[in-house]
Amino acid sequence: MRSRTSSHSAAQVAKAEFLTFQLGKEEYGIDILRVQEIRSYETPTRLAHAPDFIKGVVDLRGVIVPIVDLRMKLGCPTVEYTAFTVVIILNVAETVLGVVVDSVADVVNLPLDAIRPTPQFQSLVDESFIKGIANVDERMLIVMDIEALLSSADMGLLKAAVA
């Protein structure tokens, strides 16, 4: 009798789900396990002395949530907020925060080995924020490392902003 475990385990490829979103013409993905909810954009309350990329805070069911403009954080050109502008509420390093993006696309299930290393080139985006690039249905997806993006220094700024 042939064991099914060896063929079964070979078929099990490590996968992860990513929420995809747009910033300009680029499509990004973040680990779905970090996403708490998606909300329409509402103007946050601005905080004095906060860095420009921290748009302010909102009250989310009794929790004060800092809102980060991901375009500003990544050094992308700024745009006017529209009806499609959304805030992705994330839970990163035990901190709840929102990131403003142009629009949310969908959720994709990717084999982890489909995420290729980022090519080395001069870019506006700090490559330490990028886990890699994946092809998804004929389109390129930039997979972000949201924990690296919201580095401990920035998290300290966020925590200080809402303290």
Rank of each mutant, 00 (worst) to 15 (best):
V79W: 05
D59R: 12
P44K: 01
V92A: 01
V99F: 08
V63C: 04
V100P: 09
L110T: 03
E37W: 01
A93Y: 01
E42N: 11
I67F: 09
Y41D: 05
L60Y: 08
K55F: 09
A93D: 12
T43K: 11
P111S: 15
S103K: 14
V96H: 09
L97W: 06
K55D: 13
E37L: 03
C76M: 15
S103W: 07
N91D: 15
I89R: 04
R46H: 12
A50K: 04
K55L: 15
T45E: 07
Q36P: 00
S103A: 15
A48K: 10
D102R: 06
V100Y: 11
V35P: 00
R71D: 11
V86Q: 15
Q36S: 13
I89M: 08
Y81D: 12
L47Y: 03
L110N: 00
I67D: 11
V79S: 14
F53P: 05
A93K: 09
R46M: 11
L112R: 12
R46D: 03
V99R: 07
I88L: 04
L47N: 04
V96N: 10
V57L: 13
L97K: 06
R46I: 13
V99A: 14
A48Y: 00
S40F: 08
A93I: 03
V86G: 06
V86N: 13
V57E: 10
V96A: 11
V96M: 12
G56M: 03
E94P: 04
A93H: 09
V87D: 07
N91F: 10
K55S: 14
A48I: 08
I88K: 02
